[in-house]
């Protein structure tokens, strides 16, 4: 009996020494996210006063051309230039609602006052009053640099640094990867039930078209 026990223990010891290293954990999947996609920069780079564009290799102000060539009265429909711009700004469907017909370096406010690119928020405020007031208080839009009100490090982004003025609605983004936590899919689902909407009060009043892909067995 004792011999049997000794043999068992020595065999066990041998097994431990030979086969039982710490081993390794399973390889965890690494997601790669392009650092450029998470850079804290404004969505758009904008022109600042004095605004210049490069035409034919030469930097010029807008008024350089517009002083020579007359603009159509029926923009954007009858444009010959600036045809790459697609104007989708809701009810605002005329270029001269924003761009001053007299001074093409600036934008026109109510009463004919012209402002430059550095005060573009006043232009947007013409129609978007509540949003502008929210922006003034820091509630709408983005502030880079600091949360301390009035600090030099604060950089309030102007409207056009997020919104394309000719097409202000944000275009869809490609979402970055979702969570891949440990053993997220350790077990299989056995039925493809989607009773997410079981307790959703709206579910009775959605249209059938909306419902169809999501309706489960409930």
């Amino acid at each position: 009996m004792r011999l049997l026990i000794s043999a068992t223990f020595f065999l066990l010891a041998g097994w431990f020494l030979m086969y039982s290293g710490a081993g390794a954990l399973p390889q965890f999947e690494r997601q790669h996210v392009d650092p450029a996609s998470i850079a804290p920069v404004p969505r758009r780079a904008i022109l600042r006063d004095p605004a210049k564009v490069t035409i034919g290799g030469i930097e010029q102000r807008c008024s350089a051309c517009h002083a020579i060539f007359p603009s159509t009265q029926d923009a954007p429909a009858a444009r010959l230039q600036h045809t790459e711009i697609v104007l989708e700004h809701g009810l605002n469907d005329r270029c001269d609602n924003c761009h001053d017909k007299g001074d093409h370096d600036g934008f026109v406010l109510y009463g004919g006052r012209v402002v430059g690119f550095d005060d573009v928020q006043l232009l947007c405020a013409k129609c978007h009053g509540p949003t502008f007031r929210d922006w003034e208080r820091g509630v709408h839009g983005k502030t880079l640099g600091s949360w301390v009100v009035g600090s030099d490090a604060q950089r309030r982004l102007l409207c056009t640094e997020c919104h394309d003025p000719h097409h202000p609605a944000f275009t869809p983004y490609v979402p970055l990867p979702g969570p891949h936590t440990l053993r997220q899919h350790a077990t299989e689902r056995h039925a493809d039930e989607h009773d997410h909407e079981a307790y959703n009060p709206l579910r009775h009043w959605r249209t059938e078209a909306e419902d169809a892909p999501e309706e489960g067995a409930h």
Partner: peptide
């Protein structure tokens, strides 16, 4: 011998700590 076996198995069980 049985005791030694037991001790050996105990120490060997801790091998991963190496």
């Amino acid at each position: 011998v049985a005791m030694a076996g037991g001790m050996a198995a105990f120490v060997a069980a801790l091998r991963p700590l190496a």
